[in-house]
């Protein structure tokens, strides 16, 4: 199976490990990731204003390129996934946004939302299958108690993201189980860590992140996993708690369990 792959800006820099471990693991699993040529930054924040066109264009370009390649578009970073999936939804449901965005596009065929946007975890669940993933694991993470940190971007709004049950998700827990570890379900796994405001409102971000850490610790997690570089940074750097709680990218533990 071949996917068009959209890494996003942070995966080329600060979150290189999220990207590289993801590529190594995909290769080991027989999934081919074709990085899009000349992809542009998704903007990191989904443009909530209905009148904002420019911030949607980089997503539309990536989506149209994947359409032209007749491939699904795979993302890994939660923020990129959120932005591109929602822009795709806009193109499908909002005629005005569709027409205006297309007027900025090169190419003969207008983009109408044909591309399917797939998160790396969705690929593992729906294309490979978690049972199959379990079979491929070389070094199961036996004994590790892992808290899945979903955050907000993967799950909400549930009707648009269609990623998992937004209030009671299970995809990361299934992933953790497939890796041979024990998932720890804690109530703040789908509450926001406050990463967005980390630059200007450090105190607030620290408090929000600490709530997540405390909740995971209380329920017995040894570590957290996330797909979001901003969450990882905020929880790891800004979050304060009595006890240290390491945070890893999903692909880091995947690569470790696959021994790649």
């Amino acid at each position: 199976m071949v996917f068009d792959y959209y890494p996003g800006c942070t995966l080329k820099t600060e979150a290189r490990e999220l990207d590289e471990a993801g590529r190594r693991s995909a290769a080991a699993l027989g999934i081919e990731l074709q990085e899009l040529d000349a992809w542009q930054c998704c903007g990191a924040v989904y443009p909530l204003g209905r009148d904002e066109i420019a911030p949607r264009l980089s997503s539309v370009r990536a989506l149209a390129a994947a359409r032209d390649h007749r491939r699904d578009l795979l993302t890994l970073c939660s923020a990129c996934h959120h932005v591109i999936k929602r822009v795709n939804h806009d193109i499908r449901t909002d005629e005005k946004i569709r027409d205006t965005a297309n007027s900025y596009m090169e190419g003969e065929q207008a983009y109408q939302g044909e591309t399917k946007v797939v998160h790396y975890l969705e690929m593992l669940r729906d294309t490979l299958g978690f049972d199959e993933l379990k079979n491929r694991i070389k070094k199961p993470l036996t004994g590790m108690k892992i808290g899945a940190y979903y955050g907000c971007l993967l799950l909400r709004p549930g009707k648009v993201m269609s990623f998992d049950n937004p209030e009671n998700p299970s995809i990361m827990e299934s992933f953790i189980t497939a890796l041979g570890a024990e998932p720890v379900i804690y109530p703040y796994r789908n509450e926001c860590c406050g990463g967005y405001i980390t630059v200007k409102e450090k105190d607030q971000a620290a408090r929000t992140a600490s709530r997540v850490i405390d909740s995971a610790l209380e329920h017995g997690a040894d570590c957290l996993i996330t797909a979001c570089p901003l969450c990882l940074y905020n929880i790891d750097v800004n979050g304060t708690s009595s006890k240290d709680l390491p945070v890893y990218y999903i692909t880091q533990l995947l690569a470790q369990a696959l021994d790649v």
Binding site: N165, P166, E167, N168, I185, P187
Partner: peptide, 9 residues
Amino acid sequence: HYDEYQYAR
């Protein structure tokens, strides 16, 4: 559709 209330869990 109201899992925020944790009925199922």
